[in-house]
Computed example of a mutant assay.
Amino acid sequence: MSTFAGRGGSSTGYHMAGYRELLAVEWDAHAADTLRLNYPHLDVYHGDIAQLSVAEVLRRTGLAPGELDLFDGSPPCQGFSTMGQRQLDDPRNQLFRQFVRLVDGLAPRTFVMENVRGMVAGPMRQIYGEALAALRAAGPGYRTVSGILVASQLGVPQARGRLIVIGVREDLGLQPTLPRPQTRPVTVRDALYGLSNTPQGMKLQDHWIPVWARIKPGQSFKAIHPKGHLFSHMKISPDRPSPTILKTVGVTCDGRANAGLYHWRWPRLMTIPELKRLGSFPDAYQFARAGDEVDDFIAAWNGIGNSVPPLMTRAIAQHIRGTILRR
């Protein structure tokens, strides 16, 4: 079962690993439509997780407490992200309590909670400590392990670090562990092999093109800004993993790029087929329509940038199956 399922990054990873997903929970309409588009037989609860009772989950899945193998969730992370304001009282910081509430009632054998690495930095560690204590005390009690995993070490061509918490129910008598690095970093060039390399796409606004031309691949515009601004403009390097794909991208109403990850050869944003490769989504993965061409582009970019990369989730899921569920 996947909560805060978004546009299906985690769901896709579990499907890749051979799991059977019984229920996905998501409040955003476009994200719910995208889940249904790619997984038409999946039961998608489109609504507020705070309104989803344990009894309703058991009714929809046909399970009894204790029978679910794995409960997954990525509570919204904007309040913890180092890219944002990092406000301790951001109400989104408390959404992990809904995750804990369902763990408490469902008593799954294992759970996985994902969040940004900023949750363990500075004053945010207070909330991280509260979350761990609440998870360990949920239901019959859980043993946990947590740490920062780097997506590029798990087959994803993206240098994305994420906090992963794995819990195992106490009565199983097993100690959870984190998966070890599995692969050498995959470069952008290798990841995009076979895709057409053309100048077609969301081109930069004219006043950004001279700046794009001056910086080297792998640099952001802040490299030549006197005050270090414009870090959200990045020319990608083909010979390294992609930097973290952020959920936000700047595109004007007439389809000109104003912020994001730019191609190293052409003055344009990375295309959605390219971004799917860098986010480790299958080429055939679809994103629901959101409006016109610009709206569709932004919604798809948002979905990839806000997702746990599928290959990262697959590695975690395979590790849990091999070290816990099969035992």
Rank of each mutant, 00 (worst) to 15 (best):
residue 176 P to G: 09
residue 282 P to A: 07
residue 18 G to C: 04
residue 124 M to V: 05
residue 308 V to C: 08
residue 236 I to K: 13
residue 85 Q to Y: 07
residue 144 T to L: 15
residue 70 L to D: 09
residue 2 S to N: 12
residue 220 S to Q: 03
residue 321 R to A: 13
residue 201 G to C: 09
residue 101 R to K: 14
residue 10 S to Y: 01
residue 228 G to P: 04
residue 137 A to P: 00
residue 277 R to V: 05
residue 324 I to T: 04
residue 282 P to C: 02
residue 86 R to M: 14
residue 121 A to H: 07
residue 314 R to M: 05
residue 153 Q to K: 05
residue 307 S to W: 12
residue 56 E to D: 14
residue 239 D to A: 12
residue 274 E to N: 01
residue 94 Q to Y: 05
residue 215 I to H: 04
residue 169 R to G: 08
residue 12 T to F: 11
residue 59 R to G: 12
residue 94 Q to H: 12
residue 214 R to D: 12
residue 172 L to W: 11
residue 67 E to R: 08
residue 274 E to V: 08
residue 298 I to T: 05
residue 248 T to K: 07
residue 225 H to S: 13
residue 221 F to Y: 13
residue 90 D to Y: 04
residue 232 S to V: 01
residue 21 E to M: 13
residue 306 N to C: 10
residue 31 A to C: 12
residue 100 V to K: 00
residue 265 R to Y: 04
residue 310 P to C: 12
residue 246 L to Q: 12
residue 305 G to F: 01
residue 35 L to Y: 09
residue 164 I to G: 06
residue 311 L to D: 06
residue 99 F to Q: 11
residue 247 K to T: 15
residue 225 H to D: 15
residue 70 L to G: 02
residue 200 Q to E: 15
residue 169 R to P: 07
residue 228 G to K: 04
residue 31 A to V: 03
residue 224 I to D: 14
residue 9 G to M: 05
residue 114 E to C: 03
residue 205 Q to D: 14
residue 99 F to L: 03
residue 182 Q to M: 10
residue 172 L to G: 01
residue 64 A to H: 03
residue 315 A to V: 10
residue 6 G to P: 02
residue 150 V to Q: 13
residue 207 H to E: 09
residue 271 T to H: 07
residue 235 K to F: 07
residue 123 P to H: 10
residue 320 I to L: 06
residue 13 G to V: 11
residue 202 M to G: 01
residue 318 Q to T: 13
residue 198 T to V: 00
residue 326 R to Y: 02
residue 86 R to P: 11
residue 241 P to L: 03
residue 52 L to Y: 06
residue 30 H to W: 15
residue 298 I to G: 05
residue 313 T to A: 15
residue 281 F to G: 00
residue 158 Q to K: 04
residue 191 A to L: 05
residue 164 I to D: 07
residue 59 R to A: 15
residue 124 M to N: 13
residue 39 Y to K: 00
residue 27 W to Y: 15
residue 120 V to S: 06
residue 247 K to P: 13
residue 234 M to E: 14
residue 264 W to H: 12
residue 282 P to G: 07
residue 134 A to L: 12
residue 5 A to Y: 08
residue 220 S to T: 00
residue 239 D to W: 15
residue 219 Q to H: 11
residue 18 G to I: 07
residue 52 L to E: 05
residue 55 A to R: 10
residue 141 G to I: 15
residue 308 V to G: 04
residue 230 L to P: 00
residue 12 T to H: 11
residue 273 P to F: 11
residue 241 P to V: 02
residue 172 L to Q: 06
residue 220 S to P: 02
residue 160 R to N: 08
residue 47 G to W: 03
residue 215 I to W: 04
residue 232 S to R: 02
residue 171 D to Q: 05
residue 201 G to R: 01
residue 282 P to E: 11
residue 108 P to A: 02
residue 37 L to A: 13
residue 221 F to K: 06
residue 90 D to T: 04
residue 264 W to R: 04
residue 92 R to M: 05
residue 239 D to Q: 09
residue 108 P to F: 10
residue 95 L to Q: 14
residue 139 G to I: 12
residue 320 I to G: 08
residue 54 V to Q: 03
residue 194 G to F: 08
residue 248 T to N: 08
residue 186 V to M: 09
residue 2 S to E: 14
residue 77 C to G: 09
residue 13 G to H: 10
residue 89 D to P: 00
residue 173 G to W: 10
residue 310 P to G: 11
residue 244 T to P: 11
residue 315 A to H: 05
residue 87 Q to P: 00
residue 289 R to G: 14
residue 143 R to C: 14
residue 321 R to E: 15
residue 217 P to Q: 07
residue 117 R to K: 13
residue 57 V to H: 00
residue 52 L to I: 06
